[in-house]
């Protein structure tokens, strides 16, 4: 489903080149639940960005559902994301001017689908069936993240990337979100890639990649 080889990322800074990721290779099977863990600054988010095609690597290659990302231009990668990838962010990243329902519809609309029934059903599924017309500012953090989950699943993605999805939430709300996310994941048979520094959360994954200083430190399957 997802494979990367010799992935290296570096940024040019004032004094020289800063290597954030070095020589990372692994593969994820369809339906797998993978957690990427590591301390702050270990390169977790950079890796996630490269895997999802949000950025180009300095070296190496990523294959998403068999497609090599480096051969695609930005719009092609955007189209690929729209078709196969879902995202959940730490800060929810809802569009403040759109209602909950409209936010869930955005990825569908970008593909030209304007029927709101799927978005509505998803909001029902995440328990927000009665709040479809609310704006993000009118929702609590947990509710916003549930809207974000509904949005992530709206296009029936093959793979879901989640970046610290509970980072901004209290423990109980966070647990509820993880519950919901893994449930949806199971129902849809989606591959799940989760970035976190929360060991409890990572413990729920069947496979854990541990990063340190931009290198792959360990790859354990439970």
């Amino acid at each position: 489903m997802l494979r990367c080889e010799n992935l290296t990322q570096s940024y040019r800074s004032g004094t020289g080149t800063l290597t954030v990721l070095q020589d990372i290779s692994f593969a994820v099977e369809a339906g797998e639940f993978l957690a990427i863990v590591g301390p702050s600054g270990s390169g977790k988010t950079t890796l996630l960005g490269l895997l999802a095609g949000l950025d180009r690597p300095a070296a190496g290659e990523v294959w998403l559902d068999g497609v090599g990302l480096s051969r695609l231009d930005e719009d092609q990668r955007a189209a690929l994301r729209g078709a196969k990838v879902g995202f959940v962010f730490q800060a929810y990243q809802l569009i403040p001017t759109l209602t909950a329902l409209e936010n869930v519809q955005v990825p569908l609309e970008l593909r030209g689908e304007s029927d709101p029934s799927r978005a509505r059903a998803l909001l029902e599924r995440v328990g927000l069936g009665d709040r479809t017309g609310h704006y993000p500012a009118q929702l609590s953090g947990g509710e916003q993240q549930r809207v974000a989950l509904a949005r992530a699943f709206s296009t029936r993605p093959k793979i879901l990337f989640a970046d610290e999805p509970t980072g901004n939430l209290d423990q109980r709300t966070g647990a509820g979100i993880i519950e919901l996310m893994t449930d949806l994941n199971r129902e849809a048979g989606t591959t799940l890639v989760l970035v976190t520094h929360d060991p409890d959360l990572a413990g729920r994954a069947r496979r854990i990649l541990r990063l340190a200083d931009g290198r792959l430190e360990s790859d354990t399957t439970t």
Partner: peptide, 16 residues
Amino acid sequence: LRETVLLKTLGASRAQ
């Protein structure tokens, strides 16, 4: 910036 980039992440093309 946040919105533009978010839309792109969600699959929007540059034209959109």
